[in-house]
Design a protein around this nucleic acid. Structure first.
Lengths: 139, 139
DNA sequence: TAAACTGTATCAAAAGAGGTTACAAAAAAG
DNA sequence: CTTTTTTGTAACCTCTTTTGATACAGTTTA
C-alpha cells in the first residue's frame, strides 16, 4: 500500500484485456485475477477510459475491452493516464520569507522535474503493450 | 500519504551550506530557513552524512558543513543518499495464483523500473550543486 | 561544571492509497 | 415493464508513510 501500484495493476489489467480480444471482461473477473476489490479495478478502468485506452459498456453483458491494438498502446500513455504523483515533491511548507534561497528554488526544481518526467516518458514510450505480452509469454 | 519532499529540502540545505563555506551551520538555523523542525533537518543531514556529502560536528560550536566542493556534488548523489521510494510500486497484494499473467509481470516491471532509475540517475548526474547555485543566483 | 550542540528514540498528526459497502443508472432478457 | 446484471461513483474506514514535536543521552567547548 506504500507507493503507487496503479501502474503495475494497469499493466496487469491491460494484459488481461489484450488476451481477451474483443470479448468484454467484467470488473469482477479482473479483480479476481489481480486479487483486489472490483471497485478498485473500476476506478482504474475509469482513468484508462478517459485516456481512450479501453472501452467499457454498462448494463447486463457489460464489461471492458481494449480501445486499440496492443501494439498501439504505449506504456507512456498508460503512465500518463494515471493520477500518479510527481517523482519528488516541493517543500510542503513554504520556506521562510527571509531565506533568499527558498524563493528561487521552486522554479529550479520544477524545471528539473519536467526534465526528468520527459526522460521517463521517452523511456516508457519505447515499449508497447504488445512488447509486455511478448516478454511475459516468453518467461 | 504525504509526498516525499526530502530531495527538495536536501537541495535547499546543501545550498545553504555551500553559501556558508567552511563555517559550520547549526540545524536550528537551517530549520529556520527551511521553515521546519530542527529534528527533520538533523535526520536529513544524517543521510547526507552517510553519503559523505556533509560533515557534522557535535558539541558546543558544532554544526554541519559540506564535505566537498559544490562542483563535486552531483544531484544524483543527493538523490541516492535519500531513502526515496521507487517510482512505482509492484502489486501490494500478490496477484491470484490462478492468474498466469501476474506471475511473470513482476520480473518485467522490475526490469523496467531499473531502466527508468538509470535514465533518471543519468539526468540528475548532469547537474552539480554549483549549477543549482548559479541558476538560483541568476534568478 | 555548565552551556550548546548533534544524534536518536518515540509519539502524535496529516495525508494518501487501497479496500469495502451501498446505491443510482443503464442495458439486456424474459 | 419488471428483473437481473453490470458499470460508475460516492462515502467511509483502515493502513501506511511522512512530517512535526518532545525528550534526552552523548559530546565538545569554555
Amino acid at each position: 500500500m506504500a507507493a503507487n501500484s496503479q501502474f503495475a495493476i494497469a499493466i496487469h489489467v491491460l494484459t488481461i484485456l489484450a488476451k481477451s480480444g474483443d470479448e468484454r471482461v467484467k470488473s469482477d473477473y479482473i479483480a479476481g485475477s489481480v486479487n483486489t476489490n472490483p471497485v478498485v479495478i473500476r476506478r482504474l478502468l475509469s482513468n484508462l477510459q478517459d485516456a481512450n485506452l479501453v472501452v467499457s459498456q454498462v448494463g447486463a453483458t457489460g464489461g471492458t475491452s481494449l480501445a486499440k491494438q496492443p501494439k498501439d498502446i504505449h506504456l507512456s500513455e498508460v503512465y500518463k493516464a494515471l493520477p500518479c504523483g510527481e517523482i519528488f515533491a516541493l517543500h510542503s511548507k513554504e520556506p521562510s520569507r527571509d531565506c533568499p534561497i527558498g524563493r528561487n528554488m521552486a522554479a529550479f526544481l520544477c524545471g528539473l522535474q519536467k526534465e526528468i518526467d520527459k526522460s521517463m516518458e521517452e523511456k516508457l514510450n519505447q515499449y508497447t503493450l504488445r512488447d509486455v505480452i511478448e516478454k511475459i509469454d516468453e518467461a
